[in-house]
Design a protein around this nucleic acid. Structure first.
Lengths: 139, 139
DNA sequence: TCAATATTTTTAATTAATAAAGGAATGAAT
DNA sequence: ATTCATTCCTTTATTAATTAAAAATATTGA
């Protein structure tokens, strides 16, 4: 049983280590996980794994474009393997639960009215609101 | 000389303290400032002011909707007095310089394709790119 | 002015993330 | 398969941003 992530790493010329693979697999199972959560997941399989290795790998994977980092206010950085499709996020103000949100087909968000001379390469959108269960609890 | 911020605070039933006023004034002069910068500004006028009071006030003002907090990846929280107009931000990947960006008139960003049952009240957009001067230096 | 409440200062603690150094694993070339 | 250079991992230490707690002070409304 050979992980598809092995090929992904090779395709990006990244060396193949057990911790790195485990990070990718953990993220695949748990989208929008933070470093601490990934650390637990990885550690349950590789008991000697260190938190520093998790941070190192997350940063490396972000730099090489294999994963994406999002950082909503009030939360540590979260990571996901789903990338390159201009999808966005909806975050619950109450419980911090996150779901993916597809943007409108023509990607209107990708251009501001005036770019002020910046060359823009990404538009990051976070929708803030209340998730279904927190809406119920509020009433 | 009576500050317009005094009326603003009263209008929100917030008590009027010298530090709180100084925080608002500092933010008015320096949009997109972080807590440390605001602390310096305030301290230059009120030498006894503490950093904790800055944090307390920033949080209070955010909670009451007098100021807005933004938190781009890799930077501490930034604050601004310009609120309620659905404006967004352009952040330079290289030097972290920030400018305001108006969204398109019809606010297309305010609704995702599928809200997943969330009640959404805000769409926060950050455009990432390179500012004019960092573009020059790169060539 | 007085009491109740909210704020400020001070000190301490927490959380997230990074840094540095030596040992270990990986990958390329023999 | 062996070696070498490089990269990675573990460990330990450190930084930065923010929050917490408690006593002292200031503000507000009566």
């Amino acid at each position: 049983m050979k992980s598809a992530y092995e090929d992904l790493l090779k395709a990006h010329s990244l060396s193949l280590t057990s911790v790195r693979l485990a990070v990718l697999e953990a993220l695949g199972r748990q989208p929008h996980a933070d470093a601490a959560t990934i650390f637990e997941s990885v550690q349950s399989r590789i008991t000697t794994a260190s938190k520093q290795a998790i941070y190192n790998n997350l940063n490396t994977l972000v730099e090489h474009g294999l994963i994406r980092e999002i950082k909503p206010k009030g939360q540590p950085s979260l990571y996901e393997t789903r990338i390159g499709d201009n999808h966005h996020h909806i975050v619950c103000r109450s419980c911090s639960h996150i779901v993916d949100a597809n943007c409108h087909g023509d990607m209107p968000c990708l251009s501001p009215v005036d770019a002020h001379g910046f060359s823009i390469d990404e538009a990051e959108v976070i929708f803030w609101g209340l998730c279904p269960s927190c809406r119920k609890n509020q009433k």
